[in-house]
Structures are given as structure tokens and as C-alpha cells.
Design a binder for these strands. Structure first.
Lengths: 340, 340
DNA sequence: CTGAAAGCGCTTACAG
DNA sequence: CTGAAAGCGCTTACAG
């Protein structure tokens, strides 16, 4: 099957290729009657502009890039990215932008991918996740002048726009919830310490503990995987002063924590209360369902995608703050049982 | 920053643009000395060929397409796709092929996306999942002559290559395992009935029940989500002759089933044994860990991607069969407790 | 072995 | 309002 081109349309409409281009792109330069005729023909023969030709003649590639910097085993269970991707797609598909995906093992490779995409003119811009302190990706994107939106922060992103999420408030809300139930020994299983949002959360947690006069703020670092979530939970529960409540930095680790508690014979929530950050269907899937910090991840992704498209279009975009996560109480939190 | 082109390289090397193209693409037509000089310059200035120009001049777009036909809430928790994507990427990244992703709500939209990608020359081929009976996507891909590999089957895929997985054998293996433990009332929570692999599994399940002389083969249809997995489990456990073992068509529903059992006070595995098809980290995350039908999903994806690239290159490709899933016994299966 | 040139299918100034 | 033409950056026959 031969793909139709604007030349075919021009021939059938009896106009020049330029006129077809103007008509199809909503540019001035053709009469309404001609435009309608051209559009009708294009629709009739199922015309789609060759994206390569379009990109080559100075227009955009109409594609945006996303790298996923996680090992496969981590990626497969983490619902967060799929939620984000759904959100991107809502916005991109509506404007017929394509999404290019690449899985990378580390930030260095991620940078190489950005350089290649830029050199190949593959994408008009990129969406960046997992901001780190002194993030090496920022200066590179800046140098390439590749439009980019950072999902996360606040942090130092140079001239790049960021769509921030509040990482401190929800921690305080979770703490207030647990304190209100009577907990005093509250621990936390955190995400990778090199990520900026992990640091923000840790700081908020430490401050909340201090403000509330709690004994000490114990955060065990982890990496978002179930294995590490289990290990961290075992570690915490083996301590002489074991916590009566644990806050987890993602849902996967929280589910793993629940399993560890059940395994060693602790009842949730009577012996241990559990709060998960990022509510996904996973949290409602287990028994008891997990109290979680809920946010609309697809909406977050959609927001970031809109910002990026605006930046690509050359519109002025400023940093934005996404709506805070809020606590959704479920069966995994309750007053601590009396202890000897 | 200005992107370097072959003209820049040609100027610096003192040769024509054609020579640069031949040198960089490993074509004959330049001397070894010239080639080396050109390659060195390209590397030095960080040259990447403009993908649009390349695609426009007859070469391929060096991108392949994947549609994800699931509502967002389903997508986010299903580890299968991320596993598949990891596998694709292993192969694609090594040959610097890009992966284009689009989330679609239904097969009709999926077809539209294929037509658009084809018209735009966006992709050199596509990877197709979730084969159905009389699948409407097959004739369209055939008509467009868009290279495609179907992941799944066996089924009618016309001239399209398929990478099959064995959907019957593992069901029989799971049944044998449960029968060996002493179960007689075994039920199944199946995937969407319109999908071909669901039908194959249902048939295998029915036959196994008959062969083994089990009372009846009860399959409750579901849609891979936790909600539906819960509902199906509640339904099964409320029956007068409630099953002592349930086989689930995916891991998410199995986890949900475990939670339902715990919620209504049944002990797993004493009162109810659970087997999950598709072993993901999720299965080892819960307590007790789930006995599962394990297969290497990333390897499956990598295999399909290799087949597709071969097909795109015009090499003869034939249908292939992926290695069968095998049973990994864990804590969720045991002999049924004595019942009154 | 190398160079000059056509062409892929669009977009976009530039004339009429 | 419309047409003819240049140009984007490659690839690839076609001459030398």
C-alpha cells in the first residue's frame, strides 16, 4: 500500500503542495473553500503527514522523551511510573505527540541518551524524574538547550521548569495521624538517600519527631524494592525498642513490611501500624488495606506534560506546585496495643 | 548549541558528504584510511545522524511501536508489561532502536494508532500483545504491511510472526501439584475471556479436571484487576462447595484473593491454597509468599523484539515458541485441612 | 576509490 | 489568495 503524500492531495485538489500544507496546518494563505476541499480529500484518503519530512523541514519531531532509570526488577512492580505514563499520555495523545521511552541503568547512561536524542532530533523535549542533589543531568540539558520539565523538587534545576510536589506536608500529616492514635515510637523506611525528595521527607520526619518530642527519629534507607523493604522492616522490628508504627516511602515496601509483620506473628494494626506513601491499587489489594498518602499520579504526569508542551511551544512557563498528597486512613493504622 | 551534520564532518575531513555517509554506515566506497579519519572526527564532535533526515531518505525510522491497551488503573499495577518492556529495551537499546509507546483504551483506537504510525512512517514495526479470537488488528496490520510480531498465541495471525507461549502445559502442572497435595475442589479465576490465551488456559483447565475426574471445572472470569479478583474470590468462597484451591490468571488477582481469604478468616494455605500465574516480585512480597507459575518475562520480550528486528531487516522469520512457565512452589499451597 | 547530484516529503519565505 | 522554489540532512544510484 502506497502512503499518500501532500503531492497526491495537491494533484487531486488542483492546487500546489504549499497550499495543501497551509490548509492542513491551519495557516493563513488559502481560502476557506480551498481549505475545506483539501481537508476533505486528506481525510478521505487517510492522509498522515510523514513525520520525518515534517521534522526535517524545521518543524518539531512531535515526540517527547522519557527515560526510566531503574533496574528491571524494580521497575516491574513500581506502580508509580505507569501512573505517570498514563498521565503523560492523556495530554500527549490528545495533541498527537508521541512518547519515546528508554530504560537506562544509571544517570550517566541517561545523559548519553539525552545527547543522542538531541543529536538525532528525536524528541522536542524530555520529562525528567528522580531529581538528585547536584544532579549531573541538569547542566547537560541546560547546555543542549533541550526543553525539559523536572518532575519533583524543589531543587536546583537551573533554567529548567519543575513541577514540584510537597514532600514535607504529607509526612507531617501522617505523623499527626499516628500521634493522634497514641503512637510514640514511629520509624520510617525511606527511599534512596541520593534522591532529593527522600532528603526532604527525611528532614520533615526528623523535624516532626523533634517538634512532637518523640524519642528519636529513626529512618532506615532502602531502595523502593520489596526485598529491601522487608530487610528494613526486619531490622526495625528486631530492635529492643521496636516501633509501633512505620511510615514507608512507597507502596511496594509497605506491602513487604506488612508481610514481614505477619510472618513474625505481629498483628497489623494492633501490634504495628503501617502508612504507605503513594497510594496505588496495591494498597487496597492486601489485608488489612493500607493507610496511605494519596495523590493523583496521572494528574501529576499530565500537568508535567502540559508544562513541557508549553515550553516547547516557546510559551513562558514557570515552576508549578502539584497538589499535596493527603492521608487516606484504612485498616493498617490503629492505636497501639498496650505493651509491657 | 548547533548540531553537527555530515556536511561539517565532510568539510573537516576534506571529502564529500557521500563519503561521510558511506564511512559512517559501514558501506563500501571509501578507503579504510578515509573511513577511520571520518569516524574519528564524527566521534570527536559527537555526531549523531538526524533521525528525520535518515528516515526521509528511505532508510528506516529506527523506532518500533508498542501500544498498551489497558485502562490506567489496570496498567499501573500489572507488572507484566513493565517486564516485557524491559526485555524489549535490552534488544532495542543495543541496536539503538527507539521504543514508541502509546496507551489506548480499546482495539479500535489501537488500529487507528497503527494507521497513523504507518502513515507518518513513525515506526518500522510494532509489537502486538493480547491476541484475541478473530482479532481485528491482524487484517489491518496485514493490509498496511507493517512488520509486526505477535506476542502470544498460538492463534490466527495471518502472515504475522508470533512468539508463542505455552498456556496449557503450566495449567496442567499447577493442577498436578494441587492434586498431588490432595485437593479435589479446584477453581480458577481467569483473565478476560475475549483474549486467546485465556481461552487456551480455560480449555486446558477443563480438560485437566475431566481427565483427573474432578467434580466440575469452575472458572470465574475476571479482568486482571485486584477489584475483580476480590469479587471473583468472594464469589467462589461463598459457594456451598467452596474450593480448597484457586488458580489465578495473574499475580495481581492472586494477591487480592489472598487478602479476601485472610479477611474472611480463612488461613492460607491450610484452608485455601493459591497459585498465581506469572510470578513477579509481587508474589514474594506477601505473606505467605505465593506459589506461582514462573516465566522469564523480560526474556520473552527480548525474543519478540529480536524477531521483529529480523523481520524489519527482511530476514525470514518463523513462529517461535517461548519456554514454558514452570511451577515455583511457595507457602501458599499445601494439603487441604480436614473438613467436616 | 571518490565526487556531484538527485530525491525523500514536508514547511516556509518569496513572488505574483 | 495562490504558485513555484528553496531547503531541511541524510542516502544512494550514477559518473568519473
Amino acid at each position: 500500500m502506497k502512503r499518500p503524500t501532500i503531492a497526491d492531495i495537491a494533484r487531486r485538489a488542483g492546487v500546489s503542495k504549499g497550499a495543501v500544507s497551509y490548509a492542513l496546518n491551519g495557516q493563513p494563505g488559502v481560502s476557506d473553500a480551498t481549505r475545506e476541499r483539501i481537508v476533505a480529500i486528506a481525510r478521505e484518503i487517510g492522509f498522515n503527514p510523514n513525520s520525518a519530512a515534517r521534522a526535517l523541514s524545521g518543524a518539531s519531531s512531535r515526540a517527547i522523551g522519557l527515560t526510566l532509570c531503574r533496574p528491571a526488577r524494580m521497575l516491574s512492580v513500581e506502580p508509580f511510573f505507569m501512573g505517570l505514563i498514563s498521565g503523560f499520555e492523556q495530554v500527549l495523545a490528545a495533541r498527537s505527540y508521541a512518547l519515546m521511552l528508554q530504560v537506562v541503568p544509571d544517570p550517566e547512561t541517561e545523559i548519553e541518551v539525552y545527547r543522542r536524542w538531541w543529536g538525532e532530533r528525536r524528541v522536542d523535549g524530555v520529562l525528567v524524574t528522580d531529581l538528585r542533589e547536584n544532579d549531573i543531568r541538569i547542566p547537560v540539558l541546560d547546555e543542549l538547550q533541550l526543553p525539559a520539565v523536572v518532575i519533583g523538587g524543589p531543587g536546583d534545576t537551573g533554567r529548567l521548569t519543575q513541577v514540584r510536589s510537597d514532600d514535607a506536608g504529607p509526612i507531617r500529616e501522617a505523623m499527626a495521624h499516628l500521634i493522634g492514635l497514641g503512637h510514640r515510637r514511629i520509624a520510617r523506611v525511606g527511599g534512596p538517600p541520593e534522591m532529593l525528595h527522600t532528603r526532604t521527607r527525611t528532614r520533615a520526619f526528623d523535624e516532626a519527631c523533634q517538634t512532637l518530642g518523640l524519642p528519636e527519629a529513626v529512618t532506615v534507607s532502602s531502595d523502593y524494592t520489596g526485598e529491601e523493604g522487608s530487610r528494613a522492616t526486619r531490622d526495625l522490628l528486631a530492635r529492643p525498642d521496636r516501633p509501633t508504627a512505620i511510615i514507608y516511602d512507597n507502596d511496594v515496601m509497605a506491602v513487604a513490611g506488612l508481610a514481614v509483620a505477619q510472618e513474625i506473628g505481629l498483628s497489623v494494626p494492633a501490634d504495628l501500624s503501617i502508612v504507605a506513601w503513594d497510594d496505588s491499587p496495591l494498597c487496597s489489594l492486601v489485608h488489612p488495606p493500607l493507610t496511605a498518602l494519596t495523590r493523583d499520579v496521572p494528574a501529576y504526569g499530565a500537568h508535567a506534560a502540559r508544562q513541557l508542551l508549553a515550553a516547547i511551544a516557546g510559551e513562558p512557563v514557570s515552576d508549578a506546585e502539584e497538589q499535596s498528597a493527603h492521608l487516606t486512613p484504612r485498616g493498617s493504622t490503629a492505636s497501639p496495643a498496650a505493651r509491657v
